[in-house]
């Protein structure tokens, strides 16, 4: 990663809910084209932090810029420049693949012609041509995930946020999914993944591990393993998360 252009910059980012400090002065940078893993146990504060970064929650303190836009005042610009895919909701199950693409393309203000072109390319890349007019609900889980990732990057966002993307998918489909992510990252799209599946963490260029609202470690998976004398990210996580006091 030679070009170290910063696309996400957080400086002392804090979010309080009453007395509870969900996110406690976290500071980190994410570079262009990077696959950045944002790890933490349930309740460590990663969802809160991500909500701030995607512009749907206002921080209580600190600074952050996403794609060059301020998380306090320029949330609308942020939303235009990012893609978002969550495990829980990403596609309308009662619409067909084609209708989903058209709808989400429309949301991001793509014109009819662009949507049509992009739809064709997308269907071809994913090999979904034959299923284009099938309801999303009839697709296997892994297909849906590939589709929803492709839709999340339809409008060429600078950053894509993935919220626990690949739980429960079969190994082959999962690899195809990561192939898509690698490919996007290679084109310069920054990928921000939150997950608590540690094997997923190994796919990331760099990972941060949050414990009780703070970032306790931030480095490449390789360096972290060295630092904690561990064989796997699982072990690294264990050593850090065992100290955690709070849970959900």
């Amino acid at each position: 990663m030679e070009n170290k252009e910063i696309v996400i910059q957080a400086q002392g980012l804090t979010k309080r809910f009453g007395d509870f400090i969900a996110t406690n002065a976290i500071t980190f940078e994410v570079y262009k084209g990077e696959i950045f893993g944002f790890l933490g146990a349930n309740g460590a504060g990663k969802t809160t932090a991500m909500k701030i970064l995607i512009g749907i929650s206002k921080p209580s303190g600190g600074e952050a810029k996403v794609a060059g836009f301020d998380v306090y005042s320029e949330t609308e610009d942020i939303k235009k420049n990012i893609g978002y895919m969550s495990q829980k909701f990403s596609l309308y199950e009662d619409l067909t693949i084609r209708e989903n693409i058209r709808f989400f393309g429309g949301i991001y203000g793509l014109d009819r012609k662009t949507i049509k072109e992009k739809t064709d390319v997308l269907l071809k890349t994913l090999g979904f041509e034959a299923e284009a007019d099938k309801l999303v609900s009839s697709l296997p889980l892994g297909w849906r995930q590939k589709l929803s990732f492709s839709i999340a990057i339809l409008h060429n966002p600078k950053i894509v946020f993935l919220d626990e993307p690949t739980g429960g998918v079969d190994p082959v489909t999962r690899r195809q999914f990561w192939d898509l992510i690698y490919e996007a990252s290679n084109r310069g799209v920054t990928i921000f993944v939150t997950t608590h599946y540690m094997d997923e963490a190994e796919y990331c260029n760099r990972v941060s591990i949050m414990v009780d609202g703070k970032i306790e470690a931030l480095d490449t998976p390789q360096n972290l393993k060295k630092q904690f004398h561990a064989d796997s990210m699982d072990e690294v996580f264990h050593q850090l998360a065992r100290k955690a006091k709070r849970s959900e």
Binding site: A41, G167, G168, F237, A241
Partner: peptide
């Protein structure tokens, strides 16, 4: 263990 963090899983 689905949706459970690694420490609890172990």
């Amino acid at each position: 263990t689905t949706g459970v963090d690694p420490v609890s899983r172990k």
